[in-house]
C-alpha cells in the first residue's frame, strides 16, 4: 500500500472512531503541480487526501487558528520533520498542547515521500536529532556562499535591492507557523513602532524585525519563501540566524517540547558578564 493510501485509511479510522475531530492534510490543487491545505472532518472525505513530493507546505500553523484546539479534542495533521519541530516549539511557547496533535509523519527525499513512524511529537526525537547533525555539516547554498563572501556594505546593498521589491503583503508572516503573535508589532499603531509604508526604511525595518524575531525559532520549513509573491530570498536571512544560534549555543529549534527558547532564557553561571 502506498503511503498516501496508508494515511488515508488511518485518517478515516481516526475520524470514524472519533479519536480526532479533524484531519489537516493536502489535497489536489488548481493545476496538476499544485497541492493545497485541506481540512477533513468526515471519514468519507478522506479520499481527497493526497501525499506526494509536492506536499511542501508546513501545515502546523493552521492548528493555531483561533479556537480550533480550545475544546481539548485532538486533530491529526500531516507533518514532516520541520512540522514536528514546529509542534515542539509551539508547545514550548505554550501555544498548544502536543497531546492534542496526532501526527501523520512523512519525509520528502528528493522526489520520494517516505513514512516517519510515530504518533506524538515526542516519538520523532531520533529523526530530529539526525536532522540536527546533518544541519551542522550542511554547506551554504550558492547564493548564501556569495553573501558570506561579501563585505558588510555589499551585503547591505544586496538586501536593500531585495527588500525594495517588498510590497508589505505580509505573506511571509501569515505563512509562518512561528508568527503566532495575536497582534504583530507592525499592527500596533498606538504608537506605530514599525513604519507600515513600503519604502526603503519601512521594508528594511519589517524584514529585519521578523528575522530577529525568528532567530533560534525558525525550523527552516520554507513557507515564507514559497509564499513571497516577489521572491525575496527570506530563507537566507533565517538560515543565517539559525546557523549562528546553532554554532553559538548548540541550539537547534524544536528538539523537544521542553527546550528553552535560545533568546528568551539565561543561566546565572553564563560566562558573559552582562547577563548577571
Amino acid at each position: 500500500m502506498s503511503l498516501q493510501e496508508h494515511y488515508r485509511s488511518q485518517a478515516r479510522e481516526l475520524l470514524a472512531a472519533g479519536a480526532v475531530k479533524m484531519v489537516v492534510g493536502y489535497a489536489e490543487g488548481t493545476t496538476p503541480e499544485r497541492r493545497r491545505p485541506v481540512f477533513i472532518t468526515e471519514p468519507e472525505e478522506c479520499s481527497r487526501l493526497v501525499l506526494d513530493a509536492r506536499c511542501r507546505t508546513n501545515l502546523a500553523g493552521y492548528l493555531l487558528r483561533e479556537g480550533l484546539l480550545s475544546d481539548g479534542r485532538e486533530i491529526a495533521v500531516y507533518l514532516s520533520t520541520e512540522g514536528v519541530r514546529t509542534i515542539n516549539i509551539l508547545a514550548a511557547e505554550s501555544q498548544l498542547s502536543s497531546a492534542q496533535v496526532r501526527i501523520l509523519g512523512f519525509e520528502i527525499d528528493r522526489d520520494e515521500v517516505k513514512a516517519m513512524e510515530g504518533k506524538r511529537a515526542a516519538d520523532f526525537s531520533e529523526a530530529i536529532l539526525a536532522h540536527k547533525e546533518r544541519r551542522k555539516k550542511q554547506a551554504p547554498d550558492e547564493l548564501a556562499a556569495k553573501l558570506e563572501a561579501m563585505n558588510a556594505a555589499e551585503r547591505f546593498t544586496f538586501w536593500q535591492g531585495e527588500f525594495s521589491r517588498c510590497i508589505k503583503c505580509y505573506a511571509c508572516r501569515q505563512a509562518c507557523p512561528m508568527c503566532w503573535c495575536r497582534r504583530c508589532v507592525v499592527d500596533n499603531n498606538q504608537p506605530q513602532w514599525v513604519n507600515t509604508s513600503s519604502h526603503t526604511l519601512g521594508n528594511l525595518e519589517w524584514n529585519l524585525v521578523r528575522a530577529f524575531h525568528l532567530a533560534g525559532r525558525c525550523v527552516e520549513c520554507g513557507n515564507c519563501g514559497r509564499a513571497c509573491p516577489v521572491d525575496i530570498p527570506l530563507h537566507l536571512l533565517n538560515r543565517k540566524m539559525t546557523g549562528e544560534v546553532l554554532e553559538a549555543f548548540d541550539h537547534y529549534p524544536g528538539m523537544d517540547e521542553h527546550q528553552e527558547p535560545a533568546l528568551a532564557s539565561f543561566r546565572k553561571d553564563d560566562p558573559e558578564t552582562f547577563i548577571l
Binding site: C169, Q174, P229
Partner: peptide, 13 residues
Amino acid sequence: SERCIGCGSCTYL
C-alpha cells in the same frame, strides 16, 4: 476560505 492565511498577496497583485 478555510485555508486562507490572511496575507495581502491577492489584493496587492
